[in-house]
Structure formats: C-alpha cells, structure tokens
Design a protein around this nucleic acid. Sequence first.
DNA 1: TGTTAGCACTCAAAGGTGTCGAGTGCTATT
DNA 2: AATAGCACTCGACACCTTTGAGTGCTAACA
Lengths: 343, 343
Amino acid sequence: MNVELSARSRQILEAIVEDYIATAEPVGSSAVARRHAMTLSSATVRNVMANLEEMGLLTSPHTSAGRIPTEKAYRFYVDSLVALRQVSRDEKRQIINHCRKAGAGLSDILKETSRTLSQLSNYMGIVVAPSFNSDVFRHIEFIRLGHRKILAILVSSNGAVQNRLIETEEDHDPEELVRMGNYLNEMMQGLTITQARERVLAEMKNEKTKYDHLMSRALRISEQAVTVDGDDVFVEGQARILDQPEFSDAARMKEIYEAFEKKGIILQLLSRCMSADGVQIYIGSETSLSRSAGVSLVTSRFVTSSNTVGMLGVIGPTRMGYSSVIPIVDYTARMISRLLSEA
Amino acid sequence: MNVELSARSRQILEAIVEDYIATAEPVGSSAVARRHAMTLSSATVRNVMANLEEMGLLTSPHTSAGRIPTEKAYRFYVDSLVALRQVSRDEKRQIINHCRKAGAGLSDILKETSRTLSQLSNYMGIVVAPSFNSDVFRHIEFIRLGHRKILAILVSSNGAVQNRLIETEEDHDPEELVRMGNYLNEMMQGLTITQARERVLAEMKNEKTKYDHLMSRALRISEQAVTVDGDDVFVEGQARILDQPEFSDAARMKEIYEAFEKKGIILQLLSRCMSADGVQIYIGSETSLSRSAGVSLVTSRFVTSSNTVGMLGVIGPTRMGYSSVIPIVDYTARMISRLLSEA
DNA sequence: TGTTAGCACTCAAAGGTGTCGAGTGCTATT
DNA sequence: AATAGCACTCGACACCTTTGAGTGCTAACA
C-alpha cells in the first residue's frame, strides 16, 4: 500500500486531487501544468500521469477526458499529502457558540453539534451518543401511570435519560414504587448500566432476595428498565449532499438516504471508530456504507465526564474537502470532550 | 369552487386523474376511451376534455401531449369522485403488528407509526406528538448530577417524558431535591403543563411562598423545568419520495428536504389540521409547504387517554394514490387513538 | 343535437450526423 | 530527462430529420 513516489509525482498527484476536489471534473495534463504554475510542460505531466495511472492512483473515465483520482489516491493523499488548514477563528467561534446555544441536555448538545458539523463542512454531520450501557448508573425511578402500568426512568451520570413503559403483573401503589426505587438505587450505585443489569440478574437468583416480595418484584421490573438497546444517532444536513454534483441522480441518492434510515448500519460502521484515538478517515469502499455510492467518512471520538466514548464526524462524497474537514472534526471533538468533561 | 359537471364529464375526469396517478404521464383522449372501456370514441372524449380544460381542471404541458389534472381537479377528485379502497386485511394486520411491536413508550409508538404509514403508503409518513404542554401533569423529579447541576424530569399522563438540565445558583443536596419534588408534585396535581407553569409563576409572586426558602427555590427551578417548547415530530421514509418520477431532479428534492429539516415549518402546517376531525387533505399549494414542489398532505388527528391531540399523516406528490392513502391514514389514526386511549 | 370519422397540424422525443476540442500516447528532438 | 509536435480518440454539443401521439376542426351521420 505504501507507494514510493518521487517528490514531483507527489506534487502532481496532490494537484490533481485538489483540482478534482474543487471542480468535480476530470483534470487534464495541461490544467495541472498551468494551474499549478509548474515549470513543467503538459507533456511531462502526461508522462507522470501515465505512471500514476499504472500504479492505480488515477483512472480516466474515457480515452480523452482528464484523469480522476482513485480511492487509493485519496488514501495516499490524506495519509501523506494533505496540508491541513487551520481552523479559522470564525469557525472556532461558531463551534463554541453552538455549544453554548444548545440546551444543556446531553442530547440537545449532541444534536446541535451534528448541525454545526454539517454547517461548517457543508456535508452531513453525524454524532453518535456515548453508549448508555457503558455509562455509570445514577438514578432509577418508577412512576405509576395507570393500572399495572409504570414508567421506569433511568438516568446515567452523563445526564442521559432513558424511559420505558412497563406493564406489570400486579398493580403497585406509589409508596411501593418509591421503596423499590430506593432499594435499587442503593444496589446499583457506582455500577455501569451493563454491570447493573448483570447485578439484577444475579440478585434474581439469590435465595435471600427470592423470597422477599418487594425485592423480587423490584428486580423483575428493573430488569426491563436496565435493558437498553441501541444508541442515539444524530444526523443533520442531509439536504446538503444534494449540492454535490455527483449525487444529482436519484438512484444514487436513494441508496444513501436508505442507508441512513437504517441507523443500525451507521452504528455498526462507527463502532469501529470508537477504538482508536484521533481523527479517523474512511474512504469510499472502506466505509462499507454502500459500495457504489462513493462516500467518505471523517470521524473522531469524544469523551464525557464519566469516561464514556461517543463519536462524531462528517459524511460526504469521496471527493471531499479533507484539508478543512479534518481539522474541523478534530477541533469539534476536542471542544465537545471539554464541554462534556466539565460536568 | 363547486363545479357542476355532467355524469359523463365526471367519469372522464376521474379516469384521467386515476390514469395520471398511475402513470405520471399526460393522458390522451384515446387512452381514456380505450382503457376506460367506454362506449365513447376518442373524438367525443376530446370534446369533453376541451371543456374540462376550459374549466381549469386540466392543462396540457404542450400542444400535442395529453392532459394532466390541475390542483383544482385533484381537489374535485378527492371531494366527490374518489372511490375509497377498503383497508385490506393485510394492511390492517401490518398496522396492528406495528403498534404491538413498538416499545411501549409514547415516542416509540409514534415513531413506529410514522414508519408504518410510510411503508403502507409508499410515501413519507409523518406523526406529530400530542402537545406536551396541553397534557396533564403527572410527576416532577429532580436528580442531582453534579455541583450546582440538577436534572429535572417531567412526566405527563401520556407517559411522555421531558428532561432538562438546570444549573442552579447554589448547590442542593438530594434530600432537599426530594422535598422540593414533593411540594411541586402536590401543587401541580391535576393541572396541565401549561396551567402548571402559570401556577408556578403565580406562586412566585405569592408573599407566603416568597419567604419560604425551600419553596421559592423549588419554584425558581421548576419554572425552567415546566417550560417546554416544541413538539416532537417523527418523519420516516424520506427516501421513498425519490421513487416518484416527479422528484427525480435534484433542485426540487432539495427544496423538500430542506423544508423537512426545519421541523418548525411542518408544525405550523399541521397545527391547522388539529382543529378539525376526520381526514384532512391539502393539495399542492394548499399545503403552503413549498410552492413549486407539488406535494400533497393527507392527515388525521388522534387522541390520547388524557385527551390531548396529535396528528398523523402522509406526505407525497400531488399525484398521490388518494384512494388508498386516505383509508390508510384514517384507519391508522383510529387504531392509534384506541391504542393510546387504553392506557 | 349529440356522436363519430377523417384529416391537417403541432410538437416533444428519439435518433442520426457532423463538428469541435480537450486530452491522450507516441516519437523525434533538444 | 524534458519538451514539442502530431495523429488519434471520443464525449459534448449543435443541428437535422423522422416518428408518433395527441389535438382541434369540420363534415357526415344517427
């Protein structure tokens, strides 16, 4: 994968990639020679381009069009060519303002962040909330809504709230529910949600609690309450990708939108990004999002006060302005981490 | 508006509208004569069509294409021509299954409903949750998250949950928060959220409470908690409208998608539908959604156990299969009302 | 009087042809 | 090694013709 290239070849490749990113049109040899104010003639550039094509870094859509970069070229570009732009003062201001503006709830902040990413990058912004299950338990509470219907509210240290309606076998009066809550709150103190669930399951088998009416009921109910599946995903700016010329045809677009309606796909895709630190970049087929669609993904992790990990990033066409998107994603992730760590 | 038409003209108009709905292509006189197995020749149909055009019910995109229905024609069609299909057993089954499948929480149900509508209609499904503010207060609760940070949780009779992070001026310990909760719960019992807010504001001016430390603090905090703005909107199946030939071009699509990112527009649009009972239909420019887009809206209200009103419906092209969409929306609204009233 | 057949007319869509020009690969030259 | 020159390729575009669906009108007919 690691290609050896002369300095000149690299320069030319860089010029082609950047030109193509800017124009979305195949770039020809003379364009490179001219625009890049090189001392080289177009003929020379042609020779180099022929080389690059042989190495699988460029392709031509047809005989007499210019060349366009392959995924491999983008990969090489982001790995060793791209000159990252600084995040401008104005952009920083926008990011910070957005953080402040958002209602203080976790999901408000994340939604607003997603929107910010979309605005700054002009692509789609995406934020995956830190997994509720790995967050630390804070509080559980039962509220009677009606006959044999109670609402369980589960709060984590992040301030994330899950609520679930539970139908019980027998009716419970409010005082009973309060006592159940107290018992469970004590029991789960300091555990993560996942651990809390395990603890509940363990206690249910425990002989002592088995015969305590209140406890066994509390456990039965809370088992449902602490079973949380699926994390929140915030996607904003879907309309923006319609600006990109490569997505002007309906079939292609549809593929992408359908991918986004099944949030499961995205989660699966992004769980990979959680493991590594710093900005991660997935180009075209590396995203395994939709093989024909030609989308790329720039992501980074963020952490919360309770040390859970979330993910944020930008999805756009493979032909994406990496030089500005990468720093934006990086900076935003840092700011969100800081904001959420203050708590 | 109420046009007088002979039985024959009506039949022909109906045939044209239905043909156009089915094919999205201008329909010509011979097509009507043939497909509709009429005893009339195409020449006669032509005469009638010329009449209909004069009345503003048809237009031709150009001289020698067929005719297409105007908005006025659709209006007339849904008002007095359309033969509503029965909701098929299979569709009923799907609707009911979806209701059951959804997690029992209110927002889960509504989201799932939106998806169901989308699937059955093949257009976009939309559901607006009953306004939280007009729902009856059930429970309020404060949880300490950190120094001077508390989470307020507000539950309505519907089982809808709102949570809000509040930064307080001084730190409150958990017991204090519990006492505050008790006080407020008692105070707000039986009121709607809106009334509860008014009550809080009134109490804040009350001399008696003003000098009670606990109460005045509780009121100050709860004021923020009971201020809820914006209702939930669930839109599903956005990708489906890409199937419609009239939306194959990007500019048009973008307009629609942008409209949907600002959920405020939808809310405003739909608040109108809340007032009247039964299925409401808005055609083309009647939606005021986006003047050029040519979208229609079929909606109906649903009610919950606490007598709050929500809205559900289908958004699709003006050229929409009204005969099946209308019954589907109607039936779904009834089922959801029943499901939510059981509670 | 309402219906129909016939006919001339219109016009978008589809297909064919020719030109243009951007871009290439190759080769000879510096 | 770099460049200039040149023949070649092929999509884009403009222009044309053909085709056919559909219309409006009129005259004939029941």
